[in-house]
Design a protein around this nucleic acid. Structure first.
Length: 453
RNA sequence: GCCCCCAUGGUGUAGCGGUCAGCACGCAUGCCUUUCACGCAUGUAGCACGGGUUCGAUUCCCGUUGGGGGUACCA
């Protein structure tokens, strides 16, 4: 690589997604990943995946795998990593030693009680300052004077007075480093240019900046995303239905619809479009336009959006998705007549499963539509259907309408009994289409059964 | 407690000193119609409150209230 090219590379955007593997990837984390991905793809930059696993208790291989699965399902790829934060502990130790050596950090055995005692004496707003000891945890020295300003692409500048900041513990007594230290070093070493993460990290940013400053390193540009809440305004949790990516997947949502929805949750373009394909998103997404206020996750809108995406897929593709989702095969004909009626992949089977598994059992439907009148109509339909040739929608429809006319009935008085006979319920795809998909034999058999019951 | 962030209909957002405050979801009604949907049409509902600044504030400043985050030898 020549010098010129190197210069170009150094100007490119490098972002990262750094989840801590504490379980399933939540929607908030998924959105953070999406925004970073959008930024990287838009700028032709690099997305680094780093696993923040310094908390050994919660970081299990299963949890890491869950996050990677979720990203794959969302079709968000990364260019470097996954890098385990723990795997970088040698480097962390080197930097820690240097900070200790240069006096930017010190060892201390101060406990939470000691910190409280300090505040009782100096005032609650006064940041804790410890005294150097021979052993104990490592604390970063925060100056008493001055302030640290976080320059944020979304929020502008936020100023933190040093006198309010506690000397943060950056390494445990056993030497293992803590998040606020490791994250600063890792982002620095990875050459991250833009740190895009949740707002819950904003208050800790000055500590990370102080670490960087102690090292004489330059700082990245920050962008803190507003947090996501549940429908009730409270923190998002399992109580709110699908709160994790795997739950969204299980609920039958399409990854492209989820990307579209998540992109709009906290971000809006000037032209106010709602349906935005991923390529368009890459082209139009601007981190500066991300909203500052927290957003609520609204599954109703996701459902609507998902329905729009479902209807945009052609029948073959939708069939592939549905077959993968249900684990069944030979669904195409049933899919073709159900497309307009489902909003999620999960909606399909309850609507059209009767075609394969036989009529559902809905006593109320039978009672209402298969009484004396219903059976009489059904018998007429059976007779008419026996003559239809070929057994196609084009031939079936006029035959049934002729029955309606001959009986002087309302359409529903004839069609609903047929529907209940075939599906067992009052809801199904169009009746002519359903008949055609079922075929003459199966249709007549089901009608006979309803008549005999 | 202390530090920090945020505030447009029920929800997500557009707006960046003068607009009938726009769009989407939802909800309601109508049309379509064999069920359920889809689609189409119409309607419903909002600038948290109080002070300023200004000829004029949804928009700028301050405060209040209300949410949220941080304050761990968690991330």
């Amino acid at each position: 690589m020549g010098a010129d090219q190197h210069l170009v590379v150094s100007w490119l955007m490098r972002v990262r997604f750094a989840p801590s593997p504490t379980g399933a990837l939540h929607i908030g984390g998924a959105r953070t990943a999406l925004y970073n991905w959008l930024l990287a793809r838009h700028a032709g930059g690099t997305l680094v995946l780093r696993i923040e696993d310094t908390d050994r208790e919660r970081s299990t291989p299963e949890n890491v795998e869950q996050i990677i699965d979720a990203l794959r399902w969302l079709e968000l790829d990364w260019d470097e990593g996954p890098i385990s934060q723990v795997s970088r502990s040698d480097r962390h130790q080197d930097v820690l030693a240097r900070l200790l050596e240069e006096g930017h950090a010190y060892r201390s055995n101060a406990t939470a009680q000691d910190v409280q005692a300090f505040k009782d004496e100096h005032g609650a707003e006064r940041g804790f300052r410890g005294v150097a000891e021979d052993e104990g945890a490592v604390r970063l020295r925060v100056p008493d004077e001055g302030e640290t300003v976080v320059h944020d692409l979304i929020r502008g500048d936020t100023t933190f007075a040093h006198r309010h900041i506690d000397d943060p513990v950056i390494a445990r007594a056993d030497g293992s480093v803590l998040y606020n230290f490791a994250v600063a070093i890792d982002d620095l070493d990875a050459g991250i240019t833009h740190v895009v993460r949740g707002e819950d990290h904003l208050s800790n940013t000055p500590k990370q900046l102080l670490v960087l400053e102690a090292l004489g390193a330059s700082q990245p540009v920050y962008a803190h995303l507003p947090l996501l809440h549940g429908p009730d305004g409270k923190k998002l949790s399992k109580r709110h239905g699908a709160a994790s990516v795997q739950e969204l997947r299980a609920a039958g949502y399409l990854p492209e619809a989820v990307r579209n929805y998540l992109a709009l949750l906290g971000w809006g373009d000037a032209d106010d479009e709602t349906i935005i394909s991923t390529p368009e998103l890459i082209q139009r997404f601007r981190i500066e336009r991300v909203a500052r206020n927290p957003a609520r996750f609204d599954e109703q809108k996701l459902r609507w959006l998902n329905g729009r995406y479902m209807r945009e897929l052609d029948t073959d593709e939708l069939t592939r998705r549905l077959e993968a989702y249900t684990g069944r095969e030979g669904l195409r004909d049933a899919v073709a007549i159900s497309e307009e009626k489902v909003q999620t992949l999960a909606d399909f089977w309850p609507l059209a499963g009767f075609i394969f598994d036989g009529p559902a059992d809905d006593p109320a439907a039978r009672e209402k539509w298969l009484g004396e009148e219903g059976r009489a109509a059904l018998a007429d339909v059976r007779a008419a259907l026996a003559e239809v040739e070929p057994f196609t929608v084009e031939q079936v429809e006029p035959a049934l309408r002729a029955v309606v006319e001959a009986r002087g009935a309302k359409p529903r008085e004839v069609f609903q009994p047929v529907r209940v006979a075939l599906a067992g319920t009052t809801v199904s795809p169009g009746i002519f289409e359903t008949l055609a998909v079922l075929g003459r034999d199966a249709s007549l058999e089901r009608i006979d059964r309803a008549l005999a019951a």
